[in-house]
Nucleic acid binder design. Structure first.
Lengths: 244, 244
DNA sequence: AGCGATTTGTCCGTATGTATC
DNA sequence: TGATACATACGGACAAATCGC
């Protein structure tokens, strides 16, 4: 079967286009039956390129730890994950992952107090300049980074949430310790962009990778906004589902 | 202000990385105040590259019709859109766009009858091999392609839906003419991948572009599946919002 | 154990694209 | 505008490892 051809001389190296496609195919389960990638010659034929070009693509994937080439046997698939995040009124990060990962971590990278910009103020229904607490977090599942997020909270209502998050690694738990037993996801915006430099290092991606960006607003039971968060997920590793 | 540096020699040409970043900045409204891109020398400084490299990036964006360089004035922004698609139980494509575009089009690219694969059968709650109608559609807003979709319908229940769609350009209307007055969005999966060759031509994208992929299931009022659709949207031009 | 087929690893050389100065 | 350095992509040839018969 002839694969849809890659495009030449458009600023994206052939080996990178091919690496991206193979990575997607692995995540999509296309090679599950054999547990390895087709032989280099076959891939070269499918993509209409030289075998060396396929080798460059596979070398990049091996660098990412996704595959491992073994002389004489083939190129074995080591890692193949795509976490599913349900989005609903009850969206909770850690619960959402559920049993899809054994080990869940929430790291606090940084925290600060700052004044609400016009955009933040309107989303959180505060006045411009109102004090906010900003948390920079990195979440991991089974040691792999699955999202990095910037979250803002009204500072007067949730003093101490930074420490609470650092200790628990969970927004839900942190909310609980500062006096909010429950909250609800009001709205979620989803876009996708190329990974920027910070994404590349924080999420351990390679250049050209895609990140899914969500902008989420959480509120308490009375509908008063309690958190606005911008989260960035490696697109290869996650998908979102909305159940209506 | 020093921009986060672009990465060299990682399979994506500098000019393309910069083009992607500028395109995102335009879509994000960063240059709305002046209506044009900063001068080439300024951009070169920000990204830490030679001015020629910035020129290659801007030339690519001009080719896409996003900017236009005018000698003596600068590089003007021609087009800057990001359509918002609400996702809910009542998700309707044309209504969802609402007044975000004046002109809405739904084109039938192809239709066929085929047998349900295991995946399709399980999603539509049919038996494997059940007859399905497949529609390939392209939707445009203000002449710009905003999604291409493949949709499957149970063939026995919705015979004639291909013609109905071709005539109306609307799934909702087509359902109405074949006897289904109302339907409900049951679930939506969202992922993001690099555009493949078909995306590039159908959605008029340039290589390296990102497409948002949705897999949606619609059902009738009794919860019986009536449609399963895989849609692909140019990530630069759309975002999704989920209101809970 | 031997053999051939399959598959990855390494080397050569050449042409073109990318980026700087 | 050229000159230069490096990355990308191709083509071919052969070595080395694995597997099934």
């Amino acid at each position: 079967m002839q694969e849809a051809a890659v495009r030449r001389q458009n600023g994206v190296a052939l080996w990178r286009q091919i690496a991206d496609r193979i990575r997607s195919a692995i995540a999509g389960g296309d090679y599950d039956a054999i547990g390895k990638v087709p032989p280099e010659m076959v891939l070269a034929e499918q993509f209409g390129v030289n075998r060396h070009t396929v080798r460059s693509a596979l070398a990049a994937l091996a660098q990412e730890g996704i595959v491992q080439a073994v002389q004489g046997r083939g190129t074995l698939i080591l890692r193949k994950e795509r976490l599913n995040f349900p989005i609903s009124r009850r969206t909770r990060f850690n619960q959402g992952i559920g049993d899809q990962a054994r080990e869940k971590e929430g790291l606090l990278l940084a925290s600060a107090e700052e004044a609400a910009t016009a955009d933040l103020a309107s989303r959180l229904k505060l006045s411009v300049g109102a004090p906010l607490i900003r948390l920079e977090t990195l979440r991991k599942a089974d040691r792999r980074p699955v999202s990095r997020a910037t979250a803002w909270f009204p500072a007067d209502r949730f003093a101490g949430i930074a420490d609470a998050y650092r200790d628990s690694g969970s927004i839900t738990t942190a909310f609980g310790t500062v006096g909010l037993p429950d909250y609800i996801r009001v709205s979620t915006e989803i876009t996708a962009v190329h990974a920027d430099n910070d994404d590349l290092s924080a999420l351990e991606l390679s250049p050209g990778a895609i990140v899914l960006v969500t902008r989420a607003l959480n509120a308490d039971a009375d509908g008063v906004p309690v958190q606005y968060a911008v989260s960035r997920f490696p697109a290869d590793a996650v998908q979102f589902t909305i159940e209506n």
